Every structure is written in C-alpha cells, then in structure tokens.
Amino acid sequence: MSIQHFRVALIPFFAAFCLPVFAHPETLVKVKDAEDQLGARVGYIELDLNSGKILESFRPEERFPMMSTFKVLLCGAVLSRVDAGQEQLGRRIHYSQNDLVKYSPVTEKHLTDGMTVRELCSAAITMSDNTAANLLLTTIGGPKELTAFLHNMGDHVTRLDRWEPELNEAIPNDERDTTMPAAMATTLRKLLTGELLTLASRQQLIDWMEADKVAGPLLRSALPAGWFIADKSGASERGSRGIIAALGPDGKPSRIVVIYTTGSQATMDERNRQIAEIGASLIKHW
C-alpha cells in the first residue's frame, strides 16, 4: 500500500482517536478583511474532515458561482459510474476541433488520438481543461445529471445548469451553476471519506486533486513544508474566484476548506493574494 493509499484508508480510523479540534476566530477576521479589500462577498467554511463538524464559517449558506470547482464533483460522478460498472477509466473518447472550447490546454493536443476517461478527469482537475469537462459531462448525461447525482448524495443546493464556458457567467442573483460553501464542503467530504465511492475511487479523486497544477498562487502558496493539500480552484466573470481543498499537517488531510468570492473589481492577482492570506491565517491558527 502506497503512502497515498495509506492516508485515505486511515481517514475513518483516525476519527475515533483524534484530539479535539478548536476553532480560531482570527481567520474570520481575515475573511472579513478580504471582503473589505476586494469590495466583494466572500464565503468561507472550515470543516473537520473526520467528524464533519463546522469549525468556522462566514456566509456559509449564501450562493456563489461554482466556477471550475464543479470539476471535482463531476469526476466524482464519473467515478461513481465506474464503480457501478457503467463506465471505464480506460475508455478512449474521440472528439473533433468543433468540440474544443476556450481554455483547453490538454485536449487541444489530442485531437488525433483522443483521450481516456482517466486522462480527461486528470486534465479537468489538474489543468482545469474546459473541453475535458464538457466531454465528461456528456458521458454522464449533461449538467442536469450532475445535479441529480448531487441530489442523490443529499446535496439539494449545488446545481450545474450549463456547459463550459457559459457556466462562468456569474450573474448576480442567478442561481444557475452555483453552490453554497456549507453544501460544497459537505459534499466534498462525502466524496473523499464516505461510502458513495469505493476506496480506490476515493483515492483516485484525491490523487487528481493533489496533482492540481493551476492553484499555486492560492492556499498552496501559504503551505508550510510537510503539509498535505488536494485542491481545485476556479475563476469566472465578475471578479469571481474560489477554491475547495482538503489539507492538513503531517502529510495527511484533516480539514476541508472552501473559499468563494464574487462581485469584485480587483485584479486576479489581488483576488489570489487575499485567498492566500486567508490560508496563511488558517495555518497560523491551526
């Protein structure tokens, strides 16, 4: 058993032996400061991975655009179909130039040979490839079927209504393609630790998130040596930015963190910096 498999397999085991986890309101002070700095709403939640207890939250039940963070949920739905014998990670999917949409750094290189379902999930999560996400959405029946999958998990909040890139429109008060921090954190925890997916599929999902290559300026920039993080970021119109993550010290995840912001006029660099500073406060007061 690899170190990674050891880590995921023991998450339920550690729940019975973990020390009490204490919240630190200092992080919420930073979240509120980020709102002031960005001139935008910020949603935040910090969840204990083992118990599911909410440690801190700010606007946990307000809607925010999901942006590309939905791609983790999408690959969770794909893995659920794999577990049920309805899909194979090794199945190759062929597509054409007409299928390519904006920001497809991986799929645009494989027009001649296509990509496997496994490769598409990797591209969608680690590189946020939009065509990969659309191709995967097609395999499960489209955005409405992803919403149905989430409903069956008990998440009646999170919804996907459109495809890439239209889902990134982020119109104020538009509930399409949105979630709430509390709903996203709970759903992510179920995917990573619950019985919905097999152990192998849970491991695969967290491996893809751990290999994320496009979230460096966010929480990863504040991470001390030896800490673990598996994450997925997102960005969209109207100053929207977000990240969902499982992270913790000693090389294993122990908390879920979800951060969303929307409605800012700030630059992408400034949005990144504010999220990184929230992460730094979280780690300092861990």
Results as ranks from 00 to 15, higher is better:
residue 1 M to T: 03
residue 2 S to D: 08
residue 3 I to K: 15
residue 3 I to V: 09
residue 3 I to F: 13
residue 4 Q to L: 13
residue 4 Q to P: 08
residue 5 H to Y: 12
residue 5 H to L: 14
residue 7 R to V: 10
residue 9 A to T: 14
residue 10 L to F: 11
residue 15 A to G: 13
residue 15 A to T: 15
residue 18 C to L: 10
residue 19 L to T: 15
residue 19 L to Y: 15
residue 20 P to R: 14
residue 21 V to A: 14
residue 24 H to S: 11
residue 25 P to V: 11
residue 27 T to S: 03
residue 28 L to P: 00
residue 30 K to T: 09
residue 30 K to E: 02
residue 32 K to R: 09
residue 34 A to V: 09
residue 36 D to N: 14
residue 38 L to G: 05
residue 38 L to W: 06
residue 40 A to K: 01
residue 40 A to H: 03
residue 41 R to Y: 08
residue 43 G to R: 00
residue 43 G to C: 01
residue 44 Y to E: 00
residue 44 Y to Q: 00
residue 47 L to M: 15
residue 48 D to E: 12
residue 48 D to G: 05
residue 49 L to V: 10
residue 50 N to I: 14
residue 53 K to T: 13
residue 55 L to I: 13
residue 56 E to D: 08
residue 56 E to L: 04
residue 57 S to T: 08
residue 57 S to Q: 14
residue 57 S to K: 11
residue 57 S to C: 09
residue 58 F to V: 06
residue 60 P to R: 09
residue 61 E to N: 15
residue 61 E to F: 15
residue 65 P to S: 05
residue 65 P to V: 04
residue 65 P to H: 07
residue 65 P to G: 05
residue 66 M to K: 00
residue 67 M to G: 15
residue 69 T to H: 04
residue 73 L to S: 06
residue 73 L to V: 09
residue 76 G to V: 01
residue 76 G to T: 03
residue 77 A to R: 09
residue 78 V to Y: 12
residue 78 V to A: 04
residue 78 V to L: 05
residue 80 S to C: 10
residue 80 S to D: 08
residue 80 S to P: 00
residue 80 S to F: 12
residue 80 S to Q: 14
residue 81 R to L: 08
residue 82 V to N: 04
residue 82 V to H: 07
residue 83 D to V: 01
residue 83 D to I: 01
residue 83 D to N: 02
residue 84 A to D: 13
residue 85 G to K: 15
residue 86 Q to E: 13
residue 87 E to R: 00
residue 87 E to I: 09
residue 88 Q to T: 13
residue 88 Q to R: 13
residue 88 Q to P: 02
residue 89 L to Y: 06
residue 90 G to M: 13
residue 90 G to F: 11
residue 91 R to D: 04
residue 91 R to H: 08
residue 91 R to V: 03
residue 92 R to Y: 09
residue 92 R to C: 07
residue 92 R to A: 07
residue 92 R to D: 04
residue 94 H to W: 15
residue 94 H to P: 07
residue 94 H to R: 12
residue 95 Y to L: 06
residue 96 S to G: 13
residue 97 Q to W: 12
residue 97 Q to S: 14
residue 97 Q to E: 14
residue 97 Q to P: 14
residue 97 Q to T: 15
residue 98 N to V: 13
residue 98 N to K: 15
residue 103 Y to M: 15
residue 105 P to Q: 04
residue 106 V to G: 03
residue 114 G to A: 05
residue 114 G to S: 03
residue 115 M to R: 02
residue 117 V to A: 02
residue 120 L to V: 02
residue 124 A to C: 09
residue 124 A to G: 04
residue 125 I to R: 00
residue 126 T to G: 10
residue 126 T to Q: 09
residue 127 M to A: 08
residue 129 D to V: 00
residue 131 T to Y: 04
residue 132 A to G: 03
residue 133 A to G: 09
residue 133 A to T: 07
residue 134 N to R: 01
residue 135 L to E: 03
residue 135 L to S: 02
residue 137 L to E: 01
residue 137 L to S: 02
residue 143 P to A: 04
residue 144 K to N: 13
residue 145 E to D: 10
residue 145 E to A: 14
residue 145 E to Q: 14
residue 151 H to Y: 11
residue 152 N to D: 15
residue 153 M to R: 04
residue 158 T to N: 00
residue 158 T to H: 00
residue 159 R to W: 04
residue 159 R to L: 03
residue 160 L to C: 13
residue 160 L to A: 07
residue 160 L to P: 01
residue 163 W to I: 08
residue 163 W to K: 07
residue 164 E to G: 00
residue 165 P to E: 04
residue 166 E to D: 13
residue 166 E to A: 11
residue 166 E to F: 12
residue 168 N to Q: 06
residue 168 N to C: 06
residue 169 E to V: 09
residue 170 A to C: 12
residue 172 P to K: 08
residue 172 P to D: 14
residue 172 P to L: 10
residue 173 N to S: 12
residue 177 D to Q: 01
residue 179 T to Q: 00
residue 179 T to R: 00
residue 179 T to P: 00
residue 179 T to G: 01
residue 180 M to L: 06
residue 181 P to C: 04
residue 182 A to P: 05
residue 182 A to S: 13
residue 182 A to V: 15
residue 183 A to I: 07
residue 183 A to S: 11
residue 185 A to T: 02
residue 186 T to G: 13
residue 186 T to N: 13
residue 186 T to D: 13
residue 186 T to F: 15
residue 187 T to N: 09
residue 192 L to S: 02
residue 193 T to Q: 15
residue 194 G to A: 12
residue 197 L to A: 01
residue 198 T to D: 08
residue 198 T to N: 13
residue 199 L to P: 10
residue 200 A to R: 15
residue 201 S to G: 09
residue 202 R to T: 13
residue 202 R to S: 14
residue 202 R to A: 13
residue 202 R to H: 06
residue 203 Q to T: 12
residue 206 I to V: 07
residue 206 I to K: 08
residue 207 D to G: 14
residue 208 W to C: 01
residue 210 E to V: 15
residue 210 E to D: 07
residue 211 A to T: 06
residue 212 D to N: 11
residue 212 D to A: 02
residue 213 K to D: 03
residue 213 K to N: 08
residue 213 K to M: 14
residue 214 V to Q: 08
residue 214 V to S: 08
residue 214 V to N: 09
residue 214 V to R: 06
residue 216 G to V: 05
residue 217 P to L: 06
residue 217 P to K: 10
residue 217 P to A: 13
residue 218 L to M: 07
residue 218 L to H: 02
residue 218 L to C: 03
residue 218 L to A: 03
residue 219 L to F: 07
residue 219 L to E: 01
residue 219 L to S: 02
residue 219 L to V: 06
residue 220 R to P: 01
residue 221 S to W: 06
residue 221 S to G: 07
residue 221 S to E: 09
residue 222 A to Q: 14
residue 222 A to E: 12
residue 222 A to H: 11
residue 222 A to Y: 08
residue 222 A to V: 15
residue 222 A to K: 15
residue 223 L to S: 02
residue 223 L to G: 01
residue 224 P to Q: 02
residue 224 P to K: 03
residue 225 A to D: 14
residue 226 G to Y: 03
residue 231 D to I: 03
residue 236 S to E: 04
residue 239 G to S: 06
residue 239 G to V: 02
residue 240 S to N: 15
residue 240 S to V: 02
residue 241 R to I: 05
residue 241 R to Q: 05
residue 241 R to S: 08
residue 242 G to M: 01
residue 242 G to T: 01
residue 243 I to S: 00
residue 243 I to M: 05
residue 246 A to V: 13
residue 247 L to S: 00
residue 250 D to N: 13
residue 250 D to G: 14
residue 251 G to D: 08
residue 251 G to A: 09
residue 251 G to T: 05
residue 252 K to V: 14
residue 252 K to C: 11
residue 253 P to Q: 04
residue 253 P to N: 05
residue 254 S to D: 12
residue 254 S to F: 05
residue 255 R to V: 13
residue 256 I to V: 09
residue 259 I to D: 00
residue 260 Y to L: 09
residue 262 T to H: 12
residue 262 T to N: 09
residue 263 G to D: 13
residue 265 Q to T: 14
residue 265 Q to L: 11
residue 265 Q to K: 13
residue 266 A to E: 08
residue 266 A to R: 12
residue 266 A to Q: 10
residue 266 A to V: 11
residue 267 T to R: 09
residue 267 T to M: 07
residue 269 D to G: 10
residue 269 D to C: 08
residue 269 D to S: 12
residue 269 D to E: 14
residue 270 E to R: 06
residue 271 R to S: 10
residue 271 R to G: 09
residue 273 R to K: 04
residue 275 I to V: 08
residue 276 A to V: 08
residue 277 E to Q: 08
residue 279 G to V: 05
residue 280 A to E: 14
residue 281 S to V: 15
residue 281 S to C: 12
residue 281 S to A: 15
residue 282 L to K: 00
residue 282 L to V: 11
residue 283 I to V: 14
residue 285 H to L: 04
residue 285 H to A: 04
residue 285 H to P: 00
residue 286 W to G: 00
residue 286 W to R: 00
residue 286 W to M: 02
residue 286 W to L: 12
